[in-house]
Design a protein around this nucleic acid. Structure first.
Lengths: 113, 113
DNA sequence: ATGGTTCATCGTCGATAGACGATGAACCAA
DNA sequence: TTGGTTCATCGTCTATCGACGATGAACCAT
């Protein structure tokens, strides 16, 4: 699957699997909606997200877990509530990864950097 | 699933489903590897990609199809070959979508950096 | 025409995703 | 203690993903 960590020889690594994992976490509409919901309220408990999403509580909980495991959302237990908030730095990191990927794919030859 | 096209009320739309679809296309390591391979050679036929990827030809063909359907790769039949090349603009569009999402998710908090 | 490439598609198969309801733990209020 | 919340987890079910080999179409060669 991944014969070499560096395929195109541009001198820019880009951890393929890690990047793909981030994308996978963002590849479901509900999870993007959750991100927007979380950011709109700065932080939410699970129940608040459920109100916005028209999905069962267990389903939302699963999506939240996926986002947390992907490192895009921070989780803080708060009494019987659960605080979820966007990890802005991590999200910015994804943005940077995408930008790097795009740059790699547009720099069709010379090993810069 | 998607009760309103605009959830967080920031005035920034972001088509959730479309963005999620783009991410889904990028959510597999092989497809990212293919993108890097394509960009490294400017354009490839299917067989060239197969050489790089250690996957069956039919599998690679499927991945290429997914990328084409997602609008990230352009396809041009060329005799018995098939030319595949990265759609740089589309890829840049994904990058912009991510940036917009990040911005949306950070606007309610402090703009640290 | 014949044979060799290249590639997309089909059918299959196992694994995973994504949805749900049910359940139980942890917490609060009375 | 009792009862009501909130939430994570479990078990289940269906649908899709991702892999493969086989097949056939389209295209060179000779």
């Amino acid at each position: 699957m991944n014969p070499s960590p560096e395929l195109c020889g541009t001198g820019h690594p880009i951890d393929t699997r890690a990047v793909a994992a981030k994308f996978a976490a963002l590849s479901h509409p509900a999870r993007i909606e959750i991100l927007k919901c979380l950011s709109a309220s700065r932080s939410c408990c699970c129940g608040e997200v459920v109100e916005h999403l028209d999905l069962a509580q267990s389903t939302v909980s699963q999506h939240l877990k996926i986002l947390v495991e992907a490192g895009l959302v921070r989780f803080t237990p708060d009494r019987q509530r659960s605080r979820y908030e966007v990890d802005h730095e991590a999200l910015a990191g994804v943005s940077a990864s995408v930008a790097a990927l795009v740059e790699t794919c547009c720099r069709t030859a010379e090993p810069t950097s």
